[in-house]
Design a protein around this nucleic acid. Structure first.
Length: 961
RNA sequence: GGGCGGUUAGCUCAGCGGUAGAGCACUUCGUUGACAUCGAAGGGGUCACAAGUUCGAACCUUGUACCGCCCACCA
């Protein structure tokens, strides 16, 4: 027997283990004996190998699992390819932080090999976490095929791609400005830069400050320390020939003036025409720099004259190129002002050498002030680029890096989506994809990190580069080049993590080997991911897939939203509102939850977060089980919208699981045993014909929902069918049959219940795999032992079974019961009291119906008699169900005023509806132009309402006599 | 500056041309042999605003307001 209550914790581990043992999720497991099964393949968006499961993963993987389980049950050969990503910067950062916390020497001290050993150790230690968590979620991946981006095989793919693209001229080395992250001291790509607003507060002008050259700077300095960013500084740059004349330039980055090599004005800006070509003397430095004319300069902005720092600004770099300006680098890799030999060559004044960029800024402002060359400080709001991982301001920095010619690779990738080979769902995301790829810049792929795929490039003594699959091959190339053996040194840099991720759909299938899996499963069927990585990942997989496989990596790209908290806020550590999927599944005490959410926060935040948590979860979080979480995710995954997750909602779906559990208990207790030869087409009982039709409708709706990636619709349809149709009506309506001694009706109904329940378990399985698998196994106690697990049994096939007569009859029964209940409640008839009803003027067919369902109606509406009469008793409540008039005689019990009020309300509702129909039909244009079906529907509705009105009015008149 | 979403019941959201829906919350009643993690009955909405198209608009068009996101640039 099933336990009285459903305990997810008690069954989930056992079911997981059973799935594992069965090998049911292995690629090819679903292949028919002739090997002809259609394939269905999804590659998992690989989570960071050292990461742990968050709500984004829970949503993402629930949706993938729904699709995979659905298709597997539909008989396809499903491969859900799992794996993890080495996540270059993120992982290296974690390990470095750990080393720091433990007071160990830093990575540069211990060296590359020793450091990598530590990272691998950390991977070994924590690498299984996320995989195990995905298993807890029920992810039906083929775990035997788990891959890691730095596996030998996947590394071979990276090598091959790099070498090939280099050979094709699509990977090259270049010296240009990159986004430099001074914290990690590496280049990062455009996508890894986020803009952060800097808002200034200081408003100061030399004109208001008579003596703007004295030591009064102190107060200004304090203000600057309080409001370090967001100011626009106006500097006077004196002319070389006449130091009393100057040009005013504006800048938000005073420190870069040390690298200024020109000032640009617009060629048509009359204020400056006479000055073009003249020289300025760069203050504090003394360097002679020219005034140049360039269209980049906008007369409307600032002073119309713009200082040019070609080595530290993307726009200035271009201006410098056009106007032949020198590039003077003023920073080292920490973004401090350079020192030493290089500084000598750049004539950086000694005072600033070695200063951090922000200290240098302050020093320069001060010195400019004291030189009387600071004209103005204006508050402004501007955006400062920051590294998305490091959260420090990035610095445009002139370095040698490796680039991919993305514009070239983008062409077939764009064509594939434009041509429909790959489809975005929802399709509006295709526009983002086009816009980005149409304007794509070279992709900087080298990173000055150690954790990752080291770039397969070797340098000769003169710097000549040899790109090869391995050192031996590079040596051969070098030999050929130099005509002798030379010492080679390998490029120390590694590749952007996304470079290897871009190969994921084919590298995980075995490429560069020509494996059977590659042939069978590529292109994959669908990619399920969030919009935040369309550029990082989706677009790049498209580029690499098209280039190396000559085919798209996936046919559909389903883009889901972000998981937010119940109030719509982004979940974040610092906000302290992060819900951990495992806490939802297993539950967590208040103490543990507070501890988790406040870990690593400062004192002020800890207090705020702790208070908030105590308010929101006074009793911690109860264990809701995986299925409840999954069902919630599916129900809320409406296309194109974010998921706002609330505990209330999860609790509701946990209740749904309990409901299903108890419906199964009911079936079990009533010996509703599965009959292997049960044929839903052959049922005789009206109620069974009805539920067979309802089941068919539900199956069709759920199937259509999943096929269309409308997970919320599919989940909603299944929910409604199970709760509102199967539990609330079918089970209630058959109780009299099951309690009767009509053996044939009884046995048919038992078999039918078992059959419907089987269909229900199947329909719900993609959403709630654990409880359905458990119930599936349980429902065999008296029946024939099942051969297969639910996970590999067959999805309900369309039966086409509909029984309109049965539908009409059951609908009538349901309506009668509902209406009687409603009257009982409104008339305040005690719930326990049994009452008689009179069917007024019922014809043969109504009488038959009433007789057939007497037991059921009596039971559910608490009736003690159903009589057929020609007229209603004087004191009675009247209800109308279709053509049937039902009187509830309640002499002495009924409250006449209440009944009058009730009828009045019904009449007024009917009147208002009728008026609408009349108005429509009275409009000749409606009759003339509207869809004939709509007109007919309106006429029918009108007739119906008129019938209702007549009956209600009669009832009212009777009441008043 | 350019683009994309959103604005529907107290809350969170579906619906996207033809009788305004769900879950939760709320009110009343209920220990009837699956289930109180439940059942029954109810209350609650000029579908942000304005103009248009249409026989008919929550739904289509345009505009406005507010909220959110993405991209680019601002010396």
């Amino acid at each position: 027997m099933l336990d009285k209550t459903y305990q997810p914790a008690a069954i989930e581990p056992r079911i997981s283990a059973a799935w594992d043992d069965s090998g049911a999720f292995k690629a090819g497991a679903g292949t028919s004996p002739d090997g002809q099964s259609d394939t269905y393949c999804i590659v998992i968006p690989p989570p960071n190998v050292t990461g742990s499961l968050h709500m984004g993963h829970a949503l993402n993987n629930t949706l993938q699992d729904i699709l995979c389980r659905f298709e597997r049950m539909r008989g396809k050969d499903v491969l859900w390819q799992p794996g993890t990503d080495h996540a270059g910067i993120a992982t290296q950062m974690v390990v470095e932080r750990q080393m720091m916390e433990r007071g160990e020497p830093d990575r540069r001290t211990i060296g590359r090999d020793a450091f990598l050993e530590k990272v691998w150790a950390w991977k070994a230690e924590s690498g299984g976490t996320i995989v195990n968590q995905l298993k807890r979620l029920g992810a039906s991946c083929d775990w035997s095929r788990e891959r890691f981006t730095m596996d030998e095989g996947l590394s071979q793919a990276v090598l091959k791609v790099f070498v090939q693209l280099h050979k094709d001229g699509l990977i090259y080395k270049d010296k240009r400005l990159v986004n430099w992250d001074p914290k990690f001291q590496t280049a990062i790509s455009d996508l890894e830069v986020v803009q952060v607003d800097a808002k200034g507060k200081i408003d100061w002008s030399a004109d208001d400050d008579e003596d703007a050259t004295g030591p009064e700077f102190a107060s200004l300095e304090k203000a600057l320390a309080r409001s370090p960013g967001g100011q626009m500084y106006h500097f006077r740059y004196p002319l070389s020939q006449d130091g009393s004349r100057h040009i005013v330039v504006a800048t938000t980055r005073p420190e870069t003036m040390l690298g200024d090599t020109g000032v640009a004005v617009h060629p048509e800006d009359e204020r400056y025409t006479t000055l073009v070509g003249k020289m300025l003397k760069l203050p504090l430095v003394g360097r002679e720099i020219p005034i140049v004319a360039d269209e980049y300069s906008d007369p409307e902005k600032g002073t119309g004259a713009v200082k040019i720092t070609p080595a530290h600004d993307f726009n200035d770099f271009e201006v410098g190129k056009r106007c032949n300006l020198a590039r003077i680098n003023i920073f080292d890799e920490h973004a401090a002002i350079i020192d030493g030999e290089e500084a000598d060559e750049s004539d950086i004044p000694a005072a600033y050498r070695g200063l951090d960029r922000f200290k240098a800024r302050l020093a320069i402002i001060k010195d400019m002030y004291e030189a009387g060359l600071l004209a103005k400080i204006e508050p402004t709001t501007h955006q400062v680029p920051h590294g998305d991982r490091s959260s420090v301001a990035i610095e445009p920095f002139l370095t040698d890096q490796w680039y991919v010619n993305a514009a070239e690779l983008a062409k077939p990738a764009l064509a594939a989506v434009r041509g429909g080979s790959t489809r975005f769902v929802p399709d509006r995301f295709a526009n983002d994809y086009y816009r980005w790829l149409d304007n794509i810049q070279p992709w900087c792929i080298s990173r000055q990190l150690w954790w990752g795929h080291q770039i397969p490039a070797w340098y000769g003594p003169d710097g000549e580069v040899f790109v090869a699959h391995d050192e031996a091959e590079a040596a051969e190339l070098a030999n050929a080049h130099y005509g002798k053996q030379v010492d080679l040194s390998r490029d120390p840099d590694v590749l952007d993590t996304w470079f290897s991720s871009a190969l994921w759909p084919f590298s995980t299938l075995g490429w560069p080997e020509e494996t059977p899996e590659l042939a069978r499963y590529y292109p994959t069927s669908a990619l399920i991911t969030g919009f935040d990585i369309i550029f990082f990942w989706v677009a790049r997989m498209m580029m690499m897939g098209m280039h190396f496989q000559k085919d798209v990596p996936f046919k559909d790209v389903y883009i889901h939203g972000l998981v937010r908290d119940a109030h719509g806020n982004k979940m974040s550590k610092s906000r302290g509102n992060v819900l951990d999927p495992l806490d939802i599944i297993d539950g967590v005490t208040l103490e543990d939850l507070v501890a988790k959410r406040t870990a690593g926060l400062d004192k002020e935040r800890t207090n705020r977060v702790a208070k908030e948590v105590k308010r929101e979860f006074p009793e911690g979080i109860k264990p809701y089980g995986t299925d409840a979480l999954r069902f919630t995710m599916a129900s809320m995954a409406a296309q194109g919208s974010d998921v706002k997750l609330s505990i209330d909602r999860i609790e509701g779906y946990r209740n749904f699981a309990t409901k299903l559990w108890n419906a199964s208990r009911f079936a079990e207790m009533n010996e509703c045993v599965r009959q292997t030869d049960f044929d839903p087409a052959s049922v005789n009982e009206t109620i069974n014909k009805w539920i067979v039709g309802e089941t068919e409708r539900a199956a069709t709706a759920v199937t259509a929902g999943i096929e269309a990636y409308k997970f919320n619709d599919a989940a909603g349809d299944a929910y409604e069918f199970v709760w509102d149709v199967f539990c609330d009506w079918y089970i209630e309506l058959i109780k009299p049959i099951l309690n009767s001694d009509e053996e044939s009706a009884k046995s048919e109904t038992r078999a039918c219940v078992a059959w419907v329940l089987d269909q229900v378990l199947k329909l719900l399985h993609p959403f709630m795999p654990f409880i359905t698998e458990e119930l599936w196994a349980h429902m065999v106690e008296y029946g024939e032992k099942r051969q297969k697990m639910l996970a590999v049994s067959r999805w309900p096939q369309p039966t086409g079974l509909q029984a309109p007569d049965a539908d009409a009859e059951i609908k009538w029964v349901i309506d009668v019961i509902s209406e009687v209940r409603s009257v009982r409640s409104e008339m305040n008839i005690p719930a326990g009291a049994k009452i008689p009803v009179h069917l007024i003027g019922a014809d043969r067919s109504i009488k038959d119906r009433a007789n057939r369902h007497e037991d059921t109606m009596s039971r559910l509406a608490r009736l003690d008699d159903i009589r057929f009469e020609d007229t209603a008793p004087r004191a009675s409540a009247i209800i109308i169900v279709g053509e049937t008039t039902i009187a509830i005689p309640l002499e002495g019990v009924i409250d006449m005023d209440a009944e009058r009020a009730r009828l009045k309300k019904e009449i007024s509702e009917a009147e208002s509806d009728l008026a609408k129909m009349d108005a429509k039909l009275a409009n000749p244009k409606f009759v003339e132009k509207a869809n004939p079906a709509a007109v007919e529907e309106t006429r029918e509705r009108k007739a119906e309402l008129e019938g209702l009105m007549a009956k209600l009015s009669a009832a009212m008149a009777r009441l008043d006599t």
